[in-house]
């Protein structure tokens, strides 16, 4: 299709050209960013959660204190405050460490008034790095922060699930002479998931709905592009002038999120059926 002069087009032809501009391609790409974030964050958060829950149950006091503190602090601080603080602190912390290692001869202070100044070699990513590296770095910071926050909630869910496994199961394992580690791996872990799943599925839904926070962290996600594309465009600066279309773009986001949660719900329901199969629970009886 010839999109060279959109002013002469109308109806569907205009729309087809409009929806395939470079800007719209970036918009479609940002859906991938959100899905990628979910795909990486969910397992990472689960891992953090498992670590946190095991630490919180540990017999070793410092480890237990660490696990409990992690859960308490992250769950207690509002997400947004944590996101805004943690991403900056993490970035500057990493640069500070690199600065100490890479530029030992540096004689200027790192904090100069409100400026945070490290040597060029300590910059993350390097100032000379192409923009995509900066974007990947920003995305990784965001992902890590998401994983820490949701890991704390997952830790609490898993902690509770571990406690919910009937005590008789563990005592029987002990009676058979299994060590603590063996009991954990062979008896506790396989059985706790069914207790954890309702809580974890809840978390997954909250995680999906929290992805627009990416926008706060400076990642150009679907919310950023929807706002940018939907804004009024005057004829001087675009080939496709239009009024305030933000409502339609946000409607598209709404549909996207509803579809995503709908698909998640049916997958989680199947998973639940499978995990409860044959178990002595109400869910297991009906299966």
């Amino acid at each position: 299709m010839n999109c060279a002069d959109p002013a002469t087009l109308d109806g569907l032809a205009w729309l087809a050209c409009y929806l395939t501009t470079g800007k719209h391609m970036a918009f479609y790409g940002s859906f991938g960013t959100v899905l990628l974030l979910l795909a990486i964050t969910a397992p990472t958060a689960l891992l953090f959660g498992l670590g946190g829950a095991i630490a919180a149950r540990s017999r070793i006091l410092p480890l237990r204190a660490f696990g409990k503190t992690y859960i308490a602090i992250v769950r207690g601080v509002p997400d947004i405050a944590f996101f805004l603080f943690f991403v900056i602190a993490l970035d500057q912390g990493l640069e500070y460490l690199r600065h100490q290692v890479l530029c030992p001869g540096w004689d200027q202070p790192i904090r100069q008034g409100s400026d945070f100044v490290v040597c060029q070699a300590a910059k993350l990513p390097l100032g000379t790095a192409p923009q995509w590296q900066h974007e990947v770095y920003g995305f990784l910071l965001a992902m890590f922060t998401f994983a820490i926050v949701f890991g704390a909630f997952a830790a609490n869910v898993l902690f509770g699930a571990m406690m919910a496994v009937p005590r008789a199961q563990l005592e029987t394992a002990e009676a058979y002479g299994l060590t603590r580690a063996q009991t954990f791996r062979r008896i506790l872990m396989p059985q706790m998931w069914v207790y954890a799943l309702p809580g974890l599925s809840n978390l997954w839904m909250v995680l999906i709905k929290a992805t627009p926070l990416l926008f706060l962290l400076g990642v150009e996600d679907i919310v950023y592009w929807a706002r940018e594309l939907g804004g009024t465009k005057t004829p001087n600066f675009t080939d496709y002038p239009h009024g305030d279309w933000r409502m339609w773009y946000f409607l598209a986001l709404l549909v996207f999120y509803l579809l995503l949660t709908k698909v998640s719900e049916s997958v989680l329901e199947r998973l639940m059926k499978r995990l409860t199969y044959g178990q002595a629970t109400t869910g297991g009886m009906t299966a």
Binding site: T21, G22, K23, A26, E228
Partner: peptide, 8 residues
């Protein structure tokens, strides 16, 4: 400053 149709 603005983003043109190509997103630049």
């Amino acid at each position: 400053n603005f983003l043109n149709d190509a997103g630049e």
